[in-house]
Design a protein around this nucleic acid. Structure first.
Lengths: 242, 242
DNA sequence: GAGTGGTCTAGACCACCCG
DNA sequence: GGGTGGTCTAGACCACTCG
């Protein structure tokens, strides 16, 4: 019987899942290897087969493993980065290793929602939104201009608090909205004069433009943001399935 | 006990899942509604509770439902389009309703792989790849230029057959590779002279540029494609989670 | 035919939330 | 306290693949 990493109150299927994950990470299980059968794993870990299957579920979904009916469960040859479609805080995007990221606040105001913003947030044009405009710098170079809109009706109290734009989603959560997913519409555009000025570049340079709507886990839209990424220094990676 | 749609050999959890899905679609279950508890559903459908939970799994994952421990399972307020991160055939992208899409073949050749192509396909620079260059038109307007590369070693036989570029992935499958997922790197660029010429536009216009690597379910890279989308008429939508 | 994963059962106990 | 979902069991039978 195999010794499990972690203990105390952590469900068995999670301990088994993480044990398998680390065996794959440290090459105890190599790419292309067949795992022991589910019956064997159940015996090894001292749990029922249903629990083993529950353990495998997430790893299969991530693409770390794949199954062939009647044949076995295998470690995938290539492990795609799970982070690709991971939702990160709009105003606090990760910049990768060795990069000094900073966010500066350009504007914070309450305004009536224009039509597109209102539509995305599911309320009538003209209702109040909190608008947070920020500039994201990497090593001092402007990378992204964010123009973020959140419903005033849900989050008005945040205006009365000190808050860091990096912690916007933590504030949402304090108000009972757990951020769960987002939709982004992506286009290639040219910088307008206005955007160029704010980003310290010149009009006409390529801009990766996004409109992002963020939803809580019950489906409530909690944020709509225009994003302008400098095309010459920014690329975006997404994963697709099936 | 509830009558189930579909029958004969379809697993119970799938019939239950689809029954619930259509109840949500036709508003028998409305947004925000609490579903019957798992015990109730088990009684209604005449299955065990584990089977009910299996039915709910996919719907939860899709975001159609969400759960609150100790409270219940609910229909989400907003249903995000499941198609966003759906992988579609590179050379045969869907164009939406009422659009006449066509793909014309610009080039089909065997060439040595340049470094980036070889790297993506996990073999040495200079090895043979089949290169398929196509232009995608919507209502006669060039939308996307694809420059697709597939390993000659895996798919050489397709050169000896008649084949439609629209059916590339079906051919992969015939050779034992089931397409499963892809990674796309996305940038905003300006059209080069060469790209502008092929797409019937002028150099400098915004181009949504992608490098896409496609993987079979065992992780084998089966395709690497450069995509050039006309920025003024093309936008891309992606979903992000968590 | 032997071994694998796919589906399913009929229970059990626990943790969480609410009134 | 009563109802909900979260975890888990110890079996069962089936469908698929391979030699």
């Amino acid at each position: 019987m195999v010794e499990l990493a972690m203990t105390e109150g952590v469900p068995a299927y999670i301990r088994i899942r993480e044990t398998l994950r680390s065996q794959i990470a440290d090459r105890t299980l190599k790419r292309g290897d067949r795992l022991p059968s589910e019956d064997e794993l159940a015996r090894e870990f001292g749990v029922s087969r249903m629990t083993v299957r529950k353990s495998l579920e997430d790893l299969l979904h991530e693409g770390l493993l794949y199954r062939r009916h009647g044949v076995g469960t295998f470690v995938a040859l290539l492990h795609l980065d799970r982070e690709h479609n991971r939702l990160t805080d709009t105003l606090n995007c990760a910049d990768g290793e060795g990069i000094d990221g900073r966010t500066s606040l350009l504007a914070l105001e309450v305004t009536p929602a224009r039509q597109k913003v209102a539509g995305a947030l599911c309320f009538a044009a003209g209702e109040a939104v909190i608008r947070i405009q920020t500039l994201r710098l990497a090593n001092g170079v402007p990378i992204t201009l964010h123009d973020c809109h959140i419903p005033h009706s849900l989050f008005a109290p945040i205006l009365d608090q000190q808050f860091e734009v990096e912690e916007l989603w933590a504030l949402f959560e304090k108000h009972g909205y757990r951020v769960r997913r987002a939709i982004e519409r992506i286009e290639a555009r040219q910088a307008t004069m206005e955007v160029a000025r704010l980003m310290g570049t010149r009009a006409g340079v390529p801009i990766l433009y996004k409109e992002r709507t963020v939803y809580a886990d019950d489906g409530t839209p909690v944020e709509f943001t225009y994003c302008y990424h400098r095309g010459d220094v920014y690329s975006l990676t997404v994963g697709l399935e099936r």
